[in-house]
């Protein structure tokens, strides 16, 4: 099948390659070793495969790898720089929002983009819930996830760090 050349950045590093046009971004990333990107359904229902494309959260299972050409991809592997967890990652741990952890990488990315787009705006429970409705979690009942989002927002406000 047809291959197309693409160049993209993944977690800040440049990649160039030829990809089979039938490949999803999920498959591309997992094949390159970014196995934090999980497949829970393959049809956009669960959000376990969420990554950021130019800062925007997408389900990588429903995103053609060729669409990633000339774009910057972020996965949860890249959120921890020099061994330092991002405020969102820290908040997930501190609030106990991690159980089986299969939904966690996708959720952390959703929260990351959610907060980047709402810097310094106060958040209601309802907004947070709507902003995370594309990620299923069967373990936590979402209670600690919502708290983690609130806590991460507080951290960002306090530190001014994104």
């Amino acid at each position: 099948m047809q291959q197309l050349p693409i160049t993209l950045r993944i977690n800040g590093r440049a990649y160039s390659m030829d990809v089979d046009v039938r490949t999803s971004l999920l498959e591309l990333l997992r094949g390159l070793g970014f196995t934090s990107v999980k497949e829970g359904c393959g049809v956009g229902e669960c959000g376990a495969c969420t990554v950021l494309v130019d800062g925007v959260a997408v389900d990588s299972c429903l995103y053609l790898a060729v669409w990633a050409d000339k774009r910057a991809i972020r996965t949860v592997e890249g959120e921890c720089a020099d061994g330092r967890l991002s405020p969102v990652q820290e908040a997930y741990i501190e609030e106990g929002a991690v159980q089986c952890g299969f939904c966690t990488p996708g959720l952390v990315m959703t929260t990351t983009s959610f907060l980047e787009q709402r810097e310094n705006t106060p958040l209601t429970r309802e907004e947070i819930a709507r902003g995370h409705a594309g990620n299923l979690c069967r373990c936590t009942g979402y209670q600690t996830i919502i708290r983690a989002v609130q806590r991460a927002a507080d951290k960002q406000r306090r530190s001014g760090r994104r």
């Binding site: 956009g44 959000g47 969420t50 925007v56 959260a57 997408v58 389900d59 429903l62 995103y63 959703t110 959610f114 709507r130 902003g131 995370h132 409705a133 594309g134 990620n135």
Partner: peptide, 9 residues
């Protein structure tokens, strides 16, 4: 429609 990720694409 759907959730945020779906609306984004």
């Amino acid at each position: 429609i759907g959730g945020p990720q779906i609306r984004n694409i």
